[in-house]
Computed example of a mutant assay.
Amino acid sequence: MDHRLSPWRLGATLYMPAVRSDIADAILNNKIAGLRSLVICLEDAVSDADVPLALSNLQQLLSQLAEAKNATGHDHWPLVFIRPRHAEMGEQLISGMDLSAVDGLVLPKFTLQSLPVWWRIIQETHLCMMPTLETEEVFDVLQMRELAVTLQSHACYERIIALRIGGNDLMNVVSLRRSRNFTLYDSPMGYVIKMLVAVFSSRDFSLTAPVCEHIDDHQIMDQELALDMAHGLVGKTAIHPNQIGKIEQALMVTATDHADALRILNSTQAVFKSQGAMCEPATHRRWASGILARAQVYGIAAEKSQEGIRLMKANPNN
């Protein structure tokens, strides 16, 4: 997979309805500071009545993006994905629109049964895939294990940048809405996220965290982001630009973790103590590699006892 399409480069993935008229500015003119990836949504964020308008708007946008890419390249753009409503719409997009400036598709309601359909549509394109796990099957660990095993040996494996966890749809399956006072991890989604990490991350798939729809409650957002990082999730869906900075800050690596990761990857000792904790390279090496990959993109947050937290930014070229 292209280095540009590393899962660590997703960061805060902002969903924007395809009916919006300012998407080109967000992509071409850095209208939204810090934006690393965005999804142009044709599914839940667009009403049935607005689908024709959304498709017309998207076609104009894609033409504008293709022209700009041909003129200046797209290395400085955020990653751009489209979320079609269903497979039929995905096929319509690929056959009828210029997707040369798009990095991939977000595949809604993805299941083992829909895999052959989506792969037939995407196989001959350059597009990568971000399947969204958001249906009833996701609560069943046996079905998720079967999906993970199948994907791991499927031709599409190299095209999957990450799997997205669809929190709101999954809560809807169990007739719930997230509480205003607790994180998603305090709901049935706590089990689901843990299970998906165990099943998919153990097979080298990356997972992104569900959206936190409490736009103004940054305390809940901070708590949830800390848990996202503790579960090894590589990014988080955002629904408002004011969430981007919070997500970016959470993705920064602590100085303690960075120092441990370097020692683990460079040590010749089987076990050693570092900063009050045991480090065992044989079992911590994969963790350490992920920490350094994260730090390369998001930088290091160095704590200072008297001055709060000083942020050491990542290389701006990353």
Rank of each mutant, 00 (worst) to 15 (best):
R178C: 07
A261W: 01
R85N: 06
D257L: 08
M189H: 07
L207Q: 04
M229E: 06
P116N: 05
C41R: 05
A270F: 03
A259K: 14
T72Q: 14
A238K: 01
H284S: 10
I94C: 05
R120H: 06
L65Q: 09
T208H: 01
E43A: 10
Q60I: 05
A270D: 03
L142A: 11
G167Y: 15
V138R: 02
I32T: 12
L151S: 05
A101Q: 13
R164L: 04
G166M: 08
E303M: 10
L38D: 10
R263E: 14
G11N: 01
T256M: 11
Q249N: 11
F182Q: 10
R159H: 08
T150E: 09
F205G: 00
G245I: 02
S100W: 02
T183Q: 10
H214Y: 04
Q152C: 06
T283W: 00
E134Y: 12
D140G: 08
C279E: 02
W118C: 08
E134N: 02
S202K: 04
I247G: 05
A209Q: 02
E213T: 10
K313I: 03
G308L: 07
Q152K: 11
H74W: 02
T150P: 05
R178G: 13
T150D: 02
D140Y: 05
H86Q: 12
C156V: 13
P241Q: 14
I165Q: 03
A302H: 11
G308F: 13
L42Y: 06
G96R: 12
R178K: 14
R20M: 09
P281A: 02
N315H: 15
G245S: 12
L112N: 03
A12Q: 00
L225E: 05
V211I: 15
